[in-house]
Structure formats: C-alpha cells, structure tokens
C-alpha cells in the first residue's frame, strides 16, 4: 500500500474498530449489570464541563495522547497480506511500546484534572502499568520465538505455513495474554482506574468533544488488544475464512472473550492486581517461555522454516 491509502486505512480502522468494540461491549454489558463497566461507562459528551483548577496543558493533551497511542498501534495490525498500515520489522515490539501511551494519557489527564478522583485514577493507572507490562511481554514473547520474527505480517505467515495456530501450541501464553489484555484495557475485573467508587476516575473530569475522544480511544484500545491477540495466537488474517472478514471475526471472538471473562471474577483492587501480577503471572510467564523454548527444540511450529 502507498502512504496515503495506508494512512486512510489506519484512520478508518481506528474509527471503525472503536465503533464496533463500543457496540459489542455495550450489548454484552447489558447481560452483566453487576459488573463495573469501567472505561465502557457512558461519558458526558453532551455536557461541556471541566474542573476549575486544571493544568490546561496536561488536561487538554491527555485524550489526544490516548487516541494517538491506539492509532499508532493499529498501524502494524494486519487485516490482510497487503492490508496493513505498515509492516514494520520491529512490529510486535513497536506495538507494545506505543500502546503504553494510553497509560501515560490517563496519568496526565488524571494529574491535570486535579480533582481527588482523577488523581486517584492517575496513581491507579500507573500502578496497573507496572502490573501488566512484564507478564504481557512474556506472553507475547512465545509467538515471537516460534515465528522467529517481530513483524506482525510474518507472524501470521509463519502460523499459516506451519499449519498451526499458536493458541494450540501455547494455551498458557494465550490465557496469559487474555488476563494481561484485560489489565491493559482496564476491563473487568481490573477496572480499578475507572472504578465507579471514584466515579469513573479520569472520565468524570471531561465533557464534550474531549470526552468523545476518550470514548473513541478507550473503545479502540479494547479492539486493538483483541486484534493483536488474533494476530499472535489465532493465525490473524490467514485461516479458514481468509482476509479482513476472518481477521474481523477472530478479533471479535477475542474481544467477546475478554469482556465475558470479566463476569466470572470479582473486581480486583490495585494492590490485588499488583500481587496477582508479580506472584502469579510473572512466574507463569517465565515458565511459559521455558516451555515454549522446549517445544521449539522439539520442532513444534518449525515446519514453516524447512
């Protein structure tokens, strides 16, 4: 793809993905009214209001930075062999780095809004980053080892040539990805930074167009996490139904899985999330790297390279 079509495609994907994720999540939430919606809670789009004592720069920049990070991450998500914003050689690593801009945005917005609830949300979001980054990285490492590449397109191609979806070879890694994906997307049971006890945290401090930007960014965030799960573990755009349609269906599947899994666990506080991450998920992730390494030595998923 040329530069202009790639730009148009990524913008369209950000908007369309956000709308799809929002609609699906709204529908699913209706069946689980007891679960805190967290970042999926309604925002005050029709109300122009802002706290009186904001830091104008931090406060205004925050929603823009959140959407910025999500859209940049979507650049490397392939929906077809050619249907990708840019097939970067460091794609998977780049994805992990730029998506953390959302965490920065929540921290800036919370600090900049300067209300007790929003600053509390800032601290909680930073703590959640400390909880999810390492186990998420350990979950993503598995597919990278089997595919011998960081390029997202090449990861899909490697699964296709080996005739193996990595979810089959690495069920532990996939479960780890779903758990840390829920943390990364602030979805139940890890909704603490957007909890209803602090009235939605950062979201409560925004209104009007900026609230709409938050809405789009946070819905697109869930869509992006689901899409990357489909690329890494479910064979991406290659599969029984090929191309963008199949990739869309797989993305939808992972999205529904992340949202519905939230109803089976009670909400975790930030302290519990950190403890869960460092006492359970990080050791499991390290074991998983060893496990995947052994499988590769046995030749699993390596027929793609003969």
């Amino acid at each position: 793809m040329g530069v202009a079509p790639a730009l148009a495609w990524t913008i369209a994907l950000s908007g369309g993905g956000a709308a799809l994720a929002h609609a699906v999540e709204r529908g699913l939430r209706r069946t689980m009214p007891d679960v805190d919606p967290g970042p999926a809670a309604p925002v005050q789009i029709g109300v122009e209001r802002a706290p009186a004592q904001t830091d104008p720069w931090f406060y205004s920049a925050a929603p823009a930075i959140a959407l910025f990070g999500v859209a940049l991450a979507l650049v490397v998500i392939p929906f077809g062999g050619q249907l990708v914003g840019a097939d970067l050689e460091v794609g998977a690593f780049y994805y992990l780095v730029v998506l953390d801009f959302v965490s920065l945005a929540i921290a800036l917005g919370g600090w900049g809004a300067n209300t007790p609830d929003a600053v509390e949300a800032c601290y909680r979001a930073v703590a959640q980053l400390v909880a999810y980054v390492v186990p998420l990285g350990l979950a993503v490492i598995g597919p990278l080892m089997m595919a011998r590449t960081l390029s997202t397109v090449a990861i899909v191609e490697a699964q296709h040539r080996a005739g193996l979806w990595y979810v089959v070879a690495q069920p532990v890694g996939f479960a780890l990805y779903i758990a840390t994906g829920a943390m990364q997307g602030y979805r139940a049971p890890f909704t603490e930074p957007f909890a209803s006890q602090i009235h939605g945290g950062v979201l409560a401090a925004y209104g009007g167009a900026q609230a709409l930007v938050w809405r789009v960014a946070l819905s697109a965030l869930l869509f992006t996490i689901a899409a990357m799960g489909a690329v890494l573990f479910l064979g991406g755009y290659a599969g029984p139904i090929g191309g963008p349609i199949g990739m869309g269906l797989k993305t939808l599947g992972v999205l529904v899985l992340i949202v519905l899994a939230g109803r089976f666990f009670r909400a975790r506080s930030t302290a519990e999330t950190l403890a869960l991450s460092w006492k359970v998920l990080v050791p499991v992730g390290l074991l998983n790297v060893g496990l995947v390494g052994s499988l590769i030595l046995l030749g699993v998923g390596q027929s793609a390279f003969r």
Binding site: A6, T10, F68, L88
Partner: peptide, 13 residues
C-alpha cells in the same frame, strides 16, 4: 514504513 506511523500520529493528534 515509519512515514505512515508519523503521518497517522500527526493526523490523529
């Protein structure tokens, strides 16, 4: 590849 990254970032921001 990073031209697209830069343009998307500029546009969205």
């Amino acid at each position: 590849g990073f031209v697209v990254v830069g343009l998307v970032g500029l546009f969205v921001a």
